[in-house]
Every structure is written in C-alpha cells, then in structure tokens.
C-alpha cells in the first residue's frame, strides 16, 4: 500500500534548501520528498533544522537557497504557499538553481499545524476553522466572522466533522482540551483545502492519549484523504508507529531516510551531537570561570532554531 503512494510521485519536493540566521547555518542543503498519502516524520536534535525547513516550505521563513516544489509547482520563496490557490494550477516548472522570484501563479495549498496550536482562543471553534478559508475569500466576504459565506461555514462544519468535533462548533476554542484544540487546528488546515499538511511538533504539548488521537488523525488523513503529511516529532516511538518513512536531520542535513525500521542506534546518534555540544559548552563554561555569558548565548541560539 505504501509503495503505491510513493510511486505516484512526490507531492512536496524540497531540494538543496539552505538557510542561515546570521552566522549560524540552520539548513545546509536539505533535500527530501513527501508523496501523497504518505506520513513522513522528521527527527533530529534541537537546532538540526526540522522546524525551520517546515517554516521555509510554508513561507514563514525565506530560504537562502534551494527549491521547494509542491505538486510540480515551484513555491515563491518567503511567500505563504497557502495563498490564493484559486484552483488554476500553473504549468510545472523546472527546478531552478538558487532562489528566483516567480511570477504570480497559484501554488497548491500547504497547511501547517503548530506545537502551540495557535487558535484564537476567544473565537468559536467554527470561526477558527473558517479562518482556514481566508486565503480564498475577498475582504468583503471576510472582514468579520459575520461576513463568512454560508458555503464556507458548511465546509468548515464538514472539516470539523472529519476531526470528530462537529458537536463543539459553537464553543470557544480556548475552552477545549489541548488535544481537541490541535484537532481543530487540523480542521482549519483542511478548510484551507490543503494537499500537504506540515505538523511542527504537533503532539509535544499533549498527553499520551491525546497524542495518540492526533497522530491517528494525521495517519488517517494520509491513508483516507491522500494528504501528504510531514511531521516534526520528538518521540522516535510515535515516529516508528505512525509514519511510512523517518528522516533523520543533523546540522541542517539529511543523515538518514528510511522506511520506519530505524535502528535505535541511528536515532541515538541523531541526538548525540547535541549532547556532545551541551557537554562541550559546559566544559568550556567550567574553564572560563566567572563568566556566564557564553552559555546563555548558546542556549538562546539553540532555542531559537529549535
């Protein structure tokens, strides 16, 4: 079953992605592919570039180099790939070396869910899901929640039903549990009509039962709805159980790409550089007694690129 999906061609193709924040190189020529109907997990230590790569794909960060192709269409760097997909898919473009600005053409929708979920807690669940449709609504139909067209609300209800929360539509998003909120965020991504769903540590803030539920949902979106799902995870165990392939990242590069039978050793190796760096930093700190500045800067840098 999984081989079928892979042979159908990559929905998302990332090629030679580079990104540096100041001196610090976060992505160093990262390449990977995700096919429709496939769940791919990204594992790696803090600072290995997992989140940054996803943020580059959706346009929240502007890559320094490399290409991002969604369903054969090049994404414009630094622009959100969810924008204005009016259905008119442009001609496939040959992957160009480096980053070149593309003319205004529609890109199939890429959606993202976040560790911190990022719903608007004061708004109702339904209104939060409707917000996924903003990219295809004119301002006159979206200036307020009161202006959302009925079709959009009906579509949002269908998306909520898909994640099993249709009965909570009129409740305030902030009143739901973490796991339910993350499912609402997935519904918002569906309302965006996403073909690619990126998940940045979607279950890191959730308890095991809720994690299980959200991961099952992602799995089923790939299996039953044919979405291409890429998830940054910090739990090798969940990655093994729910994904078709596991990508190991270290230093902004791909160090392994394997169908789920990853050895424990490979996973442990992934986190070893971080551990060594931590130990090295502590040793350096001990050597430079009295000065706390270097440690602080390392810590904040690590957090920033996590």
């Amino acid at each position: 079953m999984r081989a079928d999906h892979l042979s159908s061609g990559a929905m998302l193709r990332v090629d030679g992605l580079r990104k540096a924040f100041g001196e610090k190189t976060v992505l160093d020529g990262l390449s990977f592919e995700v096919a429709s109907g496939e769940v791919v997990s990204l594992l790696g230590a803090n600072g290995s570039g997992k989140s940054t790569s996803l943020r580059c794909v959706v346009g929240l960060e502007r890559p320094d180099g490399g290409t991002i192709t969604v369903d054969g269409v090049s994404a414009r760097p630094g622009e959100t790939t969810g924008a204005r997909s009016s259905g008119e898919l442009a001609r496939p473009l040959a992957p160009s070396e480096g980053v070149t600005a593309r003319s205004a053409e529609a890109v199939p929708t890429v959606a993202m869910v976040f560790q911190k979920i990022h719903l608007v807690p004061r708004r109702s669940v339904l209104d939060n899901v409707c917000a996924g449709a903003l990219g295809r609504l004119s301002l006159s139909r979206s200036w307020s929640v009161l202006a959302f067209p009925r079709e959009v609300q009906a579509e949002a209800m269908a998306c909520l039903d898909r994640v099993g929360l249709a009965d909570r539509a009129r409740e305030k998003a902030g009143r739901l549990s973490g796991g339910q909120q993350q499912r609402v965020a997935v519904a918002r991504a569906l309302c965006q009509r996403a073909q690619v769903l990126l998940a940045d540590e979607p279950v890191s803030a959730l308890d095991p039962a809720a994690s299980e539920q959200v991961m099952n949902l992602l799995r089923s979106l790939a299996d039953d709805d044919g979405l291409a799902v890429a998830a940054v995870l910090h739990q090798p165990d969940l990655a093994r159980r729910f994904s078709d392939r596991i990508l190991g990242l270290a230093g902004g590069r791909l160090v392994f790409d394997s169908s789920s039978e990853v050895t424990d050793q490979a996973v442990a190796d992934l986190y070893r550089p971080a551990l060594e760096a931590l130990e090295a930093a502590e040793a350096a700190e001990a050597a430079v007694a009295g000065s706390t500045a270097p440690k602080e800067s390392t810590d904040s840098a690590t957090k920033e690129f996590a």
């Binding site: 959706v58 929240l60 976040f114 911190k116 990022h118 903003l134 991504a189």
Partner: peptide, 12 residues
C-alpha cells in the same frame, strides 16, 4: 502564533 497560522492559510 495565530497571526502566523493565518498567514500560512493565505490571509492578507
């Protein structure tokens, strides 16, 4: 966070 989330959804 929510601002970024809506930007990803293509909101102006």
């Amino acid at each position: 966070g929510p601002v970024e989330a809506l930007r990803v959804a293509g909101a102006s």
